[in-house]
Amino acid sequence: MSIETAAFSFVEQIANCNDADRIARQFRSLLEGMGYDRILVSDLKDPLAQPQKLVTWPDVWRNRYREKGYFYRDPVVFDTLHRTDPFTWAESLDRHNSPFAERFYQEAREFGMRHGFVVPIHGARRYRGIVTVAGEHVALDSRSRAAIHLMAIYCHDKLSRLRQQSEETGERKKLTPRERECLHWAAVGKTDDEIASILTISSTTAHWHIENAKRKFDVATRVQAVLAAFRSGELNI
């Protein structure tokens, strides 16, 4: 299937789908096919510190980003606020061209995030959101750029909408058995890699399940997710 066809069918599918997990999974698998294994869909508050709609950023990088307060100096944040058209990290680096920006991108590369593509979301009533996809080996031509742009707009909108609905109804989604299992092993201190070999799944899948659990509990770290799981009775001692 061509990338344009995939984008159109994704947009059509999510119009009738009210399952945030399914939408996130679908978006993730389409992007993985293009070499992007890191995804961020969020409001543009401090997107790595606050609970967001969807994120598969490495935890080490998120913690570093938060501890160092990068949000307030991140050139991508600046560009997302001030530009309406999508851009790549390389384009943003060219524009900013400061020693900080240089160092910042160098660090991101060390965490496996070499190429990034950003879709700024300028919503109603001054709302600002962001969709970023990143990976080590990607091929970005004008067609895939346009396709990601379109999918990002619709994915961001639907995930925001569903999140708002679940906040209004005060409902929290139940963990899936897999998510509970991964969280159980995380609670006893296992890493993604260790959980992966225990459950014979890939490490990114283990990571993904825990990220989903974090999102369902609306928390930012796995420690908080473990605590929330005990508190809600999803995990027992």
């Binding site: 058209d85 700024p120 300028h122 959101g129 707009i153 909108d157």
Partner: peptide, 9 residues
């Protein structure tokens, strides 16, 4: 294209 997000919202 950037108005699409606004319209949907």
């Amino acid at each position: 294209a950037f108005l699409l997000a606004k319209g949907l919202q």
